[in-house]
């Protein structure tokens, strides 16, 4: 899959409380989550975000709690893919499980509003604005299969079990 969008760049250690504060997590309504995404980090993020835009973080993106509401909020708000230098473990699994693509690039120079294109199959990321190209760390096969299935729920619905 090929994705194109403008970058919104934040720093290191963006925790799940800042992605979606605990007080908003208790809902099954994804639009409610989207309404408060990144609210404590950047109150204007939601109004600036265009559907399909790309969120870019530094290292340890998504640290903190295990709330799946964090990737769900990003996805529901229209973020197409998250790029970071590294991801916190639970966030990484959760994002793939709910079908939000991630690309890990240990070193990148991406600035806010840069135009980015991502090829998910190859992990190739191009910063069109700065004419720079990166290749993301390869995901384990099982995660690629889960992402291709659209998430873990449809993966298990079809396969009934895990295979690695």
């Amino acid at each position: 899959m090929h994705l194109n969008g403008n970058a919104h760049v934040y720093g290191d250690d963006i925790d799940t409380d800042r992605i979606i504060p605990g007080k908003y997590t208790k809902t099954l309504n994804l639009n409610d989550l989207a309404d408060h995404v990144l609210e404590d980090l950047d109150p204007d993020f939601r109004s600036r975000l265009q559907s399909g835009d790309i969120l870019v973080g530094g290292s340890n993106f998504g640290c903190g709690s295990s709330r799946e509401q964090a990737p769900l909020a990003l996805k529901a708000a229209g973020v197409s893919v998250v790029i970071a230098k590294s991801f916190a473990r639970i966030f990484y699994r959760n994002a793939i499980n709910i079908g939000l693509p991630l690309v890990e690039i240990p070193h990148h120079e991406i600035n806010s509003q840069d135009e980015i294109s991502v090829d998910l199959e190859s992990g190739r990321v191009v910063n069109e604005t700065a004419s720079k190209e990166y290749v993301g760390t390869k995901m384990p096969e099982v995660m690629i299969s889960i992402l291709n299935a659209g998430g873990l729920a449809s993966y298990l619905k079809t396969n009934k079990n895990y295979s690695i």
Binding site: S66, I90, R93, N94, N97, L152, L156, N161, Y162
Partner: peptide
């Protein structure tokens, strides 16, 4: 710790990767 969907996967299969 795991997320909700991973947990659902274990509730279904008793396993995870």
């Amino acid at each position: 710790g795991v997320g909700s969907t991973d947990l659902a996967g274990v509730m279904l299969t008793g396993k995870t990767w």
